[in-house]
């Protein structure tokens, strides 16, 4: 069953996307040269941007008819702008969960999600001392802990070396498979898509007009 499908999607009159179907529970890589609109497509999927024409269907329903906040919580985008609050790792879980009006996961659960993202730090660690790569992984682990139906990762390994990048994706996909979570990845790293992609969608068929 398709979880996301697009039809005649056009953004700002200059990016024209081919019609795309994404099957539920799959690991899907979006490829295409830079400027082809990969990140934009993810923002269209979670309705932080609107297409100038065409339609996107989530679970068979046009997303224009879905409450955008609920959509974003289910189709969760881990964007490229990493932001962490001042304070400790635990404080960050606390802040993000309170923004979502949810109870924070307990320490064991937090540690579990950190370990998926290859982070082995005490929860009291201040985020200000984390390196760029560590901050990015913490950011990803916080998003992952919300266990969305679809997780969209925009260049999730941009601040990581090749080995770390592979183990990170391997663990995320392992988790996704146990939760029937769909994973959509945008990455420039071809070795990642070669190893992990179940489906590769080339949006380059999208011609730039």
């Amino acid at each position: 069953m398709d979880i996301i499908r697009t039809k005649d999607l056009v953004f700002e009159d200059f990016i024209r996307y081919p019609d795309i179907s994404i099957e539920k529970g799959k690991v899907v890589f979006l490829v295409g040269s830079s400027g082809s609109g990969k990140s934009t497509l993810l923002k269209l999927f979670n309705a932080t941007l609107s297409p100038s024409s065409g339609a996107i269907f989530y679970e068979g329903k046009n997303i224009d008819e879905i409450d955008t906040l609920k959509l974003r919580q289910e189709v969760l985008l881990v964007g490229q702008s990493v932001y962490l609050f001042d304070g400790s790792i635990k404080d960050n879980f606390n802040r993000f969960y309170s923004y979502r009006e949810m109870n924070m996961p307990n320490e064991e659960e937090i540690k579990y999600f950190l370990s998926i993202c290859q982070l082995d730090f005490p929860l009291e660690t201040q985020t200000s001392i984390l390196s760029g790569g560590e901050a990015q992984r913490l950011y990803t682990s916080i998003f992952l802990s919300f266990l969305p139906k679809v997780i969209m990762l925009d260049e999730p390994t941009s601040a990581l070396d090749a080995n770390n990048a592979k183990s990170l994706l391997r663990e995320i996909i392992k988790l996704a498979k146990t939760k029937d979570m769909t994973v959509i990845v945008v990455s420039h790293d071809k070795s990642l898509s070669d190893e992990f992609a179940e489906v590769i969608i080339d949006i380059e068929g999208s011609k730039t007009i």
Partner: peptide, 19 residues
């Protein structure tokens, strides 16, 4: 100056007013 924070919370499905 806090655009990343705004984008992050928006992606998490937080109400803009609250952000």
């Amino acid at each position: 100056s806090q655009r990343k924070r705004v984008e992050t919370l928006l992606n998490l499905g937080v109400k803009p007013r609250k952000i």
